[in-house]
């Protein structure tokens, strides 16, 4: 037994395992903010990375443009076809917009779950170990970004802000496996169906929407948008299109497989969304008695 304790290397290993577990425990608990050394490291590396990444993106963009040129002819044909429909659609949208505003004025309802201010940002870095799907963007606290703000591209929702530092912030993508990561969504069927975006299937690259009532009728190709009910995300951000619907394990609910509208790989420019409607304070929603549990 004394010999066991004399083995320096073993003691060292045990101590470092204890430190490891403590550190992981520290970073996994629900912490609202990063500590200042972490912020400092993030800002520094973010700055150094952006020095390299912006010129590389520029060069890569050039090659992408070349690629685009090759398919221009076919694309143009397709676009012309769609353009004819666009004019009538635009007129219709305008009309509806006006009507909506008028009706709102009559009701004296100024704020909507839909209103938001976008903040433009570019991607500086991406997590190379693909367990935690995260990207780092070049806007931070001083640009008015806060934790949990949703992040979109022109094609749809990509994720939400996980943590912020002074000049950069980290965005957790929708394709992450984090079980705590849920978004309230609406499937635009004949009657709106509510569900939660929960998880991502890595093999088929589809999002899972669970807890859809068993009798809801959902078809392939229907749009999925955010519902605005989670308190953080505004209403009406595009998530994707339904690909498949299957009953869940016990047949009580349905699970929809959704093809995300945004591409999680070619991210370069994103928008962080600041919802205008006041966000409910969490402490107001929780009773004191429950907190003690």
């Amino acid at each position: 037994m004394p010999q066991f304790f004399l083995n320096k290397r073993l003691i060292f290993l045990l101590v470092s395992i204890i430190i490891l577990v403590a550190l992981i425990g520290f970073s996994l608990r629900d912490r609202e903010r990063l500590t200042w050394p972490e912020k400092f490291v993030k800002d520094t590396t973010g700055w150094v990375t952006s020095l390299v990444s912006s010129p590389t993106h520029y060069v890569a963009g050039f090659f992408e443009n070349l690629e685009d040129l090759q398919i221009t002819y076919n694309e143009n044909k397709e676009l012309k076809k769609r353009l004819d429909k666009l004019a009538s659609l635009e007129a219709q949208v305008h009309l509806l917009d006006e009507e909506n505003k008028e009706l709102r004025d009559i009701l004296d309802k100024k704020e909507s779950l839909r209103d938001f201010d976008p903040i433009q940002a570019s991607v500086v870095a991406r997590n190379p170990d693909r367990w935690h799907e995260m990207i780092i963007i070049n806007k931070g606290e001083i640009n008015g970004i806060k934790e949990n703000m949703p992040v979109i591209t022109s094609k749809g929702l990509v994720g939400k802000v996980k943590s912020i530092s002074q000049f950069t912030s980290t965005v957790q993508l929708l394709s992450t496996m984090d079980p705590k990561y849920r978004i309230s969504a609406i499937v635009q069927a004949d009657k709106e169906v509510y569900g939660l975006v929960e998880g991502y299937d890595e093999e088929s690259e589809l999002l899972l929407i669970k807890t859809i009532p068993y009798d809801a009728k959902i078809k392939k190709g229907q749009n999925v948008i955010t519902s605005g009910l989670g308190g953080i995300f505004p209403e009406g951000l595009v998530i994707g299109k339904v690909v498949e619907v299957v009953p869940d394990q016990y047949g009580l609910n349905q699970t929809a497989y959704v093809k995300p509208g945004a591409n999680f790989y070619d991210l370069e420019n994103v928008m962080v969304i600041n919802r205008k409607m006041v966000q409910p304070d969490l402490s107001e929603m929780v009773d004191d008695e429950e907190e003690e549990l």
Partner: peptide, 16 residues
């Protein structure tokens, strides 16, 4: 440590 802080936000895994 840098990798943990910047990319994963779970400190300890790569540090170890």
């Amino acid at each position: 440590l840098t990798f943990d802080i910047v990319y994963t936000e779970v400190i300890g895994i790569y540090l170890f």
